[in-house]
Nucleic acid binder design. Structure first.
Lengths: 176, 176
DNA sequence: CCTTTGTTTCAGTAATGACTGAAACAACTG
DNA sequence: CAGTTGTTTCAGTCATTACTGAAACAAAGG
C-alpha cells in the first residue's frame, strides 16, 4: 500500500479481518476502512492502487458498499470521476450496518422458522422432534427482532447517552 | 437426511445457512440445529448419518460446539459413546454465543484500534489520515464493549422482561 | 462520430476454507 | 493383553468464494 500511513495500513488490515470473520468480504471491509480513515474522498483508481487490488474488484466492492449505504459518492469540479467517502457519523454508520444485516441475514431465518412452526400444526412432530424447542426459538428470535425495531426508533444521540450510563444500566433494566 | 422430520430438515438447512452468513461453519451450525430440535441427545454416528457428512467432520464440529459451550455431552447407562445435546434455555444459549463472538471477533479489533490510536501519538497523522475518525471509532467500539459488559450482568429473566416491553423501550431509553 | 476517460461485466483462475478417509490413538471388555 | 468399540488427527482433495484482466459499455469532448 503505497503512500499510506503505517497506522492506516494496520487499521485497514484489522478492519478487513474483522469483516471477514463476520461474513463480510475482506476487500469490501478494507475499502470501507480506507475510506473511513481518509480525510478526503477517493476515486476508484486511488483505492485500487492503495490496496493493491484490481480495478474491477474495487468497482464491485464499492457497489456493495453503496448498496449497504455506508459509502456515498461525491463529485469534484472539473473531474468526472466518482469520488467515494464513508458516511460521516460512526453511530449512523453502525445503525445502517445493523439494519442491513438484520434484514439480510436474520429476517430470512425468522421467516423460515415461522414457516417451520406453522407446518408443525399441519404435520405434527414425531418422537424425535422437539416442537416446543422450535417454538421457543421462534419466540426468542421474534422478541429480538421487535427489540431491534424499538431500539431503531431511538435517535442516535439518545442511544449514545444510554450506552454510556455504565453501571446504571443493569439497575435500570433489572428494575422494571 | 434419513428418518428426519421434514420440518427438522428445513430448519437445519436454514440454520446452517444463517450460520454461514455470520461466519460460522455451515456444518457446525447444522449440527447445532439438529441437536436443538432433537428431543433426545444424539451420538456422533447418528449425527453423521442424519446430516450425511463424514464422521471426522462431525467430530471436529462437535469439538467446536463444545468449545463454544452451547453443546454438552451426556452419557447413557450401558453405552460408552458420548451423546450430545444443546444447552437447555434459548436465552442462555444466545448469551453464550454473544459472549464468545465478542471475545473472538470483536475484542481483537478493539485492541488493534487502540494500538492504532496510541501509535498516532508517537507518529502523528499525515494529511491523508483522519485521526479524529479513528479516535471516534475507537470510542464507539469501547462504548459498545462496555454496554455489552453491563448487559451481561443482567440475569436472563430480567433481560427477557426488558426485551418484551415493546413500545415502552424508546421512552425508557430516550428519557434518561 | 471518433477519441478519450471512466465504469462495469464476465469468463477464467487463484486462494481459501471445508470435508473426507485412512491411520493413529484411547479406553474399555472378555 | 488381544480384540472391540469409539474418537481424533491430519494429509490430501474438493468446493466455494474471491479476484483478475480483457472486453464491453457509457458518457462526454473535441
Amino acid at each position: 500500500m503505497p503512500d499510506l500511513h503505517p497506522v492506516a495500513h494496520k487499521f485497514i488490515l484489522h478492519w478487513g479481518e474483522m469483516g471477514a470473520r463476520w461474513g463480510i468480504n475482506r476487500t469490501v471491509a478494507q475499502i470501507h476502512a480506507l475510506l473511513l480513515v481518509s480525510r478526503e474522498s477517493l476515486h476508484a483508481e486511488e483505492i485500487a492502487a492503495t490496496l493493491q487490488v484490481s480495478r474491477s474488484n474495487v468497482s464491485t466492492s464499492l457497489r456493495e458498499l453503496l448498496a449497504w449505504g455506508i459509502v456515498r459518492t461525491a463529485q469534484k469540479l472539473g473531474d468526472r470521476r466518482d469520488y467515494y467517502e464513508a458516511v460521516g457519523d460512526v453511530w449512523d454508520m453502525a445503525r445502517i450496518i445493523a439494519r442491513e444485516r438484520k434484514r439480510r441475514e436474520f429476517d430470512p431465518t425468522v421467516v423460515a422458522l415461522r414457516e417451520c412452526v406453522q407446518e408443525l400444526e399441519a404435520r405434527p412432530a414425531d418422537d424425535a422432534l422437539d416442537a416446543a424447542r422450535l417454538a421457543e426459538l421462534l419466540e426468542f428470535l421474534e422478541t429480538l427482532s421487535d427489540l431491534y425495531g424499538q431500539l431503531d426508533k431511538v435517535p442516535s444521540p439518545a442511544l449514545k447517552r444510554f450506552a454510556r450510563l455504565g453501571s446504571k444500566i443493569p439497575r435500570i433494566i433489572g428494575g422494571l
